[in-house]
Simulated assay, not measured.
Amino acid sequence: MFDSVGWPELLILVVVGLFVLGPERLPQAAAWLGRTVRQVKEYATGAREQIRSELGPEFDELRKPLEDLRGIRNFNPRTAVTKHLFDGENPLDGIFDDTATNGHRPEAPKPPAEQPRPLSPGERPPYDSDAT
């Protein structure tokens, strides 16, 4: 629940709470917040258990698409193509291995760059009608 809230954010919230509530009411507010969060967690767990008991094995069928959606976060296109086309075996393993070159890929040779000649006074620059 608080995955995105780090220590600096919590410190800022405590300082703001200290200014808004004052030092007398801040401990009571923190205790109330802790009880409320714990109660909400218990309600969510109870609801999940109630749904699981009422649906039985169908609950697992409902959870499967949700787990698939969570798996999309770690989606690797290369692994997906390998899995579906080659039944998990990649015939290209070792061909494009970076360890043979110590992690460095050889660069393609660059063609020599043409040096443009300077324009004469009054000469119009070249115009490419396909590029515009």
Rank of each mutant, 00 (worst) to 15 (best):
R105D: 06
Q39C: 09
E9W: 00
F86R: 02
S4Q: 11
R70W: 11
G103C: 07
Q115H: 11
G88T: 01
A47V: 14
E89S: 07
E61R: 15
G71L: 01
V37Y: 09
T101F: 14
L21I: 04
G22L: 14
K64I: 02
F86V: 02
R38L: 11
D130S: 15
A113Y: 03
Q39L: 15
P77C: 00
N76M: 03
A29M: 14
A131G: 03
E24T: 10
V81K: 00
P8Y: 00
P116V: 02
P118N: 07
P112F: 03
R38G: 06
P111R: 10
P77V: 04
F19C: 11
E24I: 12
T79S: 09
E61P: 01
S129V: 11
L11D: 08
P116Y: 01
F19L: 14
L85R: 15
W7L: 09
A131V: 02
F19P: 02
M1F: 11
T132V: 08
T101P: 05
I12F: 09
A31R: 11
S53G: 05
R52S: 10
K64A: 07
L26N: 14
T79N: 09
F19Y: 12
K64S: 03
P126L: 08
D3P: 04
D60I: 03
R73F: 08
D98L: 10
R52V: 04
L92P: 01
E9Q: 09
G56T: 05
P109D: 08
V5C: 10
R70G: 15
Q115L: 11
R38A: 13
A31K: 10
G71E: 07
V20R: 11
G88M: 00
R25N: 12
L85I: 13
P126A: 05
N90A: 04
V81S: 00
V14G: 02
Q50R: 13
T36M: 13
E58M: 10
T36Q: 13
T79P: 00
E9Y: 01
F86C: 04
D87I: 00
R52I: 03
T101W: 15
A47H: 14
P109L: 06
P109F: 04
V20A: 10
F19T: 12
P109W: 04
L69T: 05
D130N: 15
S4P: 02
E9N: 04
A44R: 14
F2W: 05
G34F: 09
P91E: 11
L33I: 15
Q50P: 00
P57I: 08
A131D: 12
L21M: 09
D68E: 13
V5N: 03
F59T: 05
A30R: 00
P106V: 15
G122W: 07
S129L: 06
E42A: 10
R38C: 06
L33F: 15
G94R: 01
H104V: 13
K64L: 07
P118S: 10
V14P: 00
G94H: 02
I72S: 05
G122F: 12
V15A: 13
D3I: 05
